[in-house]
Each structure stands twice: as structure tokens, then as C-alpha cells.
Amino acid sequence: MFEVKASMAGSVWKITAEEGSKINDGEDVVILESMKMEIPIPAETSGTIKELKVSEGDFVNEGDVIAIIEA
């Protein structure tokens, strides 16, 4: 089980992965937006997305868990 965490505070602009689907190391899970900057948050391991903890439009703080990946 790996946690995907927000690297900055901001709102969830787009979710680019689906719960239950496979994801490869380096592929984007979500794109965060803050202060006119979009930051993609990639998976740091390959596996299955077990849970997405956020919805589009949600506000997340730095370090918040965005998704859980089961390797």
C-alpha cells in the first residue's frame, strides 16, 4: 500500500486516474492547481488505485493523502 500525497496546497483541478484501474510508476493521478500553477501529482509506484481520497474541486493541504495504490 502506497500513499500518493499532495506536494503543495491547492485545489484538485483534474483527476486523471480511476479507482480500481491500473497505474504505472510516473503516471499522473491528479493535477493540482494553485496560484495560477498546475502541478501534476504522479504515482511513485506501479499498481492498482485502491482508493481516490479527493474529488475535483476539493482543496488539499501539502502532505494530504490523495490516493492509495496497492502494488
Partner: peptide, 8 residues
């Protein structure tokens, strides 16, 4: 270091 925004 990263130049990422920091609201708060």
C-alpha cells in the same frame, strides 16, 4: 526550493 505555491 521547489517554487511551488504555499497558500495559508
Amino acid at each position: 526550493n521547489t517554487f511551488y505555491p504555499s497558500p495559508g
